[in-house]
Design a protein around this nucleic acid. Structure first.
Lengths: 257, 257
DNA sequence: CGACGTGAAATCCTATAGGATCTATGAAAT
DNA sequence: ATTTCATAGATCCTATAGGATTTCACGTCG
């Protein structure tokens, strides 16, 4: 019996072409290159990525389940239309349901969760600073408006990613893989919501303060505090998102008097 | 502006081959024809269904997301292994989270929900009667054990379907499509759990009584009663499922002394 | 007797081709 | 001018073929 490593051949980089194509299409969708409602051509993507339609097809089946694209039999895929106001409200209720449950299950927080939250929050604050900087740049003289917009979008994406990381830390420590999956599934919808935001991020201070309150709640001895803090946070996010958009500014093309 | 019908061309029967293949494979998986852990050959299914591998591939990508099959890159698909005890507990917690939230949102119940629940419960009771009958048949002299087993499995499937219908009625009336989707996603996992049950259904009376309590709670003026009744129901189901199986009785073929 | 290497069969994976369906453009008729 | 119809192009959908990888059986060696 030699001391051969007990299958250290971890399944590193053991992915098929389908997964690479999936990530690539996801990138295309998240950058908003294709407008909502527009067609997502299978053959077109295959040509663009220099692959055959088969893996593209598989990736799209997967993406359909995330809600980013919709399929109509024999008519192909389309980028999902923007969320309507009603869907928005339902989405926030669903998030509140899942995340408060996860927060409750993660209570009381162990040291690992506390430190992970602190680290994630620090990154989130840094991203928030950059958002504020780029927003100021946008307000003052814009020599190169295109470049300014690009860097602002980049800062916003970073900010959202760090925001999500913060929530994911709690999910990871709730000990329930099904809640984690549900939260991830909702994540794609949340992204659609953010992509529909016409104006920049205006609630950096509020969001960071609410996250800080969640951390403090986890540190407090009250076992009901974290869940309450999370519920308050998500409700405030919903409130801010719903009051700013009087109605989802989609094309108002359906009027029947 | 004429009064052209607002697209009444209902999309009836507008499915591709992929959907048919999906349903057929689902049927195969739900009947338990392939044992957990066993391989699900793409080419084999294609030959069996007289189709090409491409639609089979798409259907399997879809099924992978439901959790009924698992994929390993370059190694194909397998039927998901049976749920471990830990997964079971997590699954029930997730169900409790989603279904209690849906119940709360469906409160107060309108007349349509009440009548729908009553109808669904009546069907559930009939299915329960059949389960009891077939169970008695199974206990007494079995001339044709094969046929007896088949009819008993059939009764159990009907019972579970009607059970699920009851819960789905509440989901439909909660007004949140994301909670509905989540509940459906969990449904496949629940099925895996039931398939792993070696013994028959032993809690028909308890389950029906708890469902009746939910109906009565919806009829009562107390707005917190339905949610509490649903929570109690799911926790009792979890309790009964977890005490009967000391450990998931999978084939004990892995022993390394 | 067990471990290891080799070969063939099976399987997965990707690419290409052709039939079926949908979309769009343009001409003809009312 | 508007509607209708027909044709052409594009796209989706399915089938088939071949390369790459895995799996399994068999024979060999320690």
């Amino acid at each position: 019996m030699n001391a051969q490593p007990p299958i250290p051949r971890a399944d590193i980089e053991r992915r098929g072409l389908r997964d690479l194509v999936y990530e690539h299409i996801l990138e295309i969708l998240l950058t908003g290159e294709i407008s909502p409602g527009e067609r997502v051509s299978i053959d077109g993507l295959a040509r663009r990525l220099n692959v055959s339609p088969t893996p593209v097809r598989e990736a799209l089946v997967d993406l359909e389940r995330t809600g980013l694209v919709v399929r109509e039999a024999l008519r192909g895929y389309r980028v999902s239309p923007p969320l309507e106001r009603g869907q928005l409200q339902e989405l926030f209720i669903a998030r509140e349901t899942v995340e408060t449950a996860a927060t409750r299950l993660a209570t009381p927080a162990d040291d690992k969760l506390l430190s992970a939250l602190a680290a994630a929050h620090a990154e989130h604050e840094k991203a928030g600073d950059r958002v504020r900087e780029t927003a100021e740049q946008g307000d003052e003289a814009t020599e190169r408006p295109e470049e300014a917009r690009r860097v602002r979008v980049s800062a916003a994406q970073e900010y959202f990613a760090r925001d999500r990381d913060f929530h994911d830390r709690i999910l990871e420590h709730c000990g329930n893989r099904y809640l984690v999956t549900m939260s991830q599934d909702l994540g794609a919808q949340v992204h659609r919501l953010r992509q529909a935001l016409p104006h920049g991020i205006t609630d950096v201070n509020e969001a960071l303060a609410e996250h800080r309150a969640i951390i403090e709640a986890f540190a407090s001895p009250d076992p009901t505090a974290p869940e309450a803090a999370m519920r308050h946070h998500i409700r405030m996010v919903a409130h801010r998102a719903l009051v700013e958009d009087p109605q989802t500014p989609t094309q108002e093309n359906h009027e029947d008097p």
